[in-house]
């Protein structure tokens, strides 16, 4: 059974003059352990699709089913709680709380989930070590490079023990070295822990590594290939 599936997903942004069909009848499934990328030209609807999958936006019509639960019907506060407990997010930017250290940023989401202090400490150290930031626990985002910040975001996304991680252009602001470092970390997590990753990207370095590419154009899936 698929971890995520969508049924005829439509999102229409009703702009004043003419409506934008950002996703058009998208039906797609993602399985546990995938390392997939949603690709396509700018404005094709990648972010919109990812937001719909993550319950950040509500579709105009259609359904998003996560782990056999139809999230499209959830109320706003139920959806927030669902995201907290089931989905890890990594965004292109503004991932972290600037006033908190790397450690506190990761701890924060576990705090929202009411983990106790010992559990939090143990897991934060484990995760930050896993993303290669063993010696940067107490650095604030402003003191970290872009790549390091994204790695903290990955650690934070994992901290909540999500079913899968959605990453919207996670490498868009990174140089090659940081991009490969981040991809290595995510790939390792994918292989070792069977963590599901779904990216949106137009970064060829990400596309190379992704094992499945879902190509969008004008809100429609035009190609879906698994390598």
């Amino acid at each position: 059974m698929s971890i995520i599936s969508t049924v005829k997903l439509n999102k229409i942004y009703a702009e004043d003059t003419f409506p934008v069909h950002a996703t058009n009848d998208i039906s797609v499934n993602f399985e546990q352990g995938e390392f997939s990328a949603i690709v396509g030209p700018s404005g094709c609807g990648k972010t919109t699709l990812l937001n719909l999958l993550g319950g950040l936006e509500t579709p105009t019509s259609g359904e998003v089913i996560i782990d056999s639960k139809i999230i499209t019907n959830l109320k706003s506060n139920e959806l927030t709680d669902f995201r907290l407990r089931n989905i890890g997010f990594v965004f292109q930017a503004y991932n972290l709380i600037p006033v908190l250290t790397a450690r506190e940023n990761v701890e924060f989401i576990m705090h929202l989930q009411n983990y106790n202090k010992d559990e939090r400490n143990a897991r934060v150290e484990e995760l930050l070590t896993a993303v290669g930031l063993k010696d940067k626990f107490n650095k604030r985002p402003g003191e970290l490079s872009g790549g390091e910040q994204q790695r903290v975001a990955v650690a934070r996304a994992l901290a909540s023990k999500p079913k899968f991680i959605l990453a919207d252009e996670p490498t868009a602001n990174l140089d090659s070295k940081s991009t490969y470092a981040l991809l290595d970390i995510m790939e390792t997590l994918n292989e070792k822990e069977n963590m599901t990753f779904i990216f949106s990207t137009h970064d060829s370095r990400v596309m190379e590594r992704a094992r499945r590419l879902v190509s969008l154009d004008d809100g429609k899936i035009v190609n879906d290939e698994t390598k």
């Binding site: 506060n77 927030t80 709680d81 907290l84 407990r85 503004y94 709380i97 989401i109 996304a157």
Partner: peptide
């Protein structure tokens, strides 16, 4: 705006 949106996205609820 973006930071607060991010906090809501990752699961901070309205009351918080």
């Amino acid at each position: 705006v973006r930071e607060i949106g991010m906090l809501m996205a990752i699961g901070m609820n309205k009351i918080q």
